[in-house]
């Protein structure tokens, strides 16, 4: 009985530790992007998503179109676009892009 209680306590502690270790970053800067696909790969645009009605914290939102997604990039996380490609937010350039577009071969 005592052994069972100890193993249960260990499971609870592991759960709490994992939750603590994976807690979200504080003061994360969200970058707002839009992208679509071209022959060259993904094209990223900086975009003011709040003007489009998105609320802070929204990381990923695909519009109905197959080639366009808008999202706020949370640097610590990964995403899958709606073509099934997996990518890390950290792969997205945070400099050198502006609202005129930037070619980024993915």
């Amino acid at each position: 009985m005592k052994k069972r209680k100890l193993s249960l306590l260990a499971i609870v502690l592991v759960g709490i530790s994992l939750a603590w270790a994976n807690k979200p970053f504080h003061n994360t800067t969200y970058h707002t992007y839009e992208y679509f696909y071209t022959y060259y790969g993904r094209v990223y645009y900086l975009k003011d998503l709040t003007a489009n009605g998105y609320v802070k914290g929204n990381q990923y939102a695909c519009d109905a179109a197959d080639y366009e997604c808008t999202f706020m990039a949370f640097p610590g996380s990964s995403q899958t676009d709606n073509t099934g490609n997996f990518f890390w937010i950290s792969d997205i350039p945070t400099e050198g892009i502006d609202n005129t577009g930037f070619y980024f071969e993915f």
Partner: peptide
């Protein structure tokens, strides 16, 4: 383990969880 983890991760990242839920 799953429920302890998910419950506490929401408490530890309350603002993040709240933002994510609103979205």
């Amino acid at each position: 383990l799953v429920f302890v983890y998910t419950g506490f991760s929401k408490l530890f990242g309350w603002d993040y969880f709240s933002d994510a839920m609103h979205n």
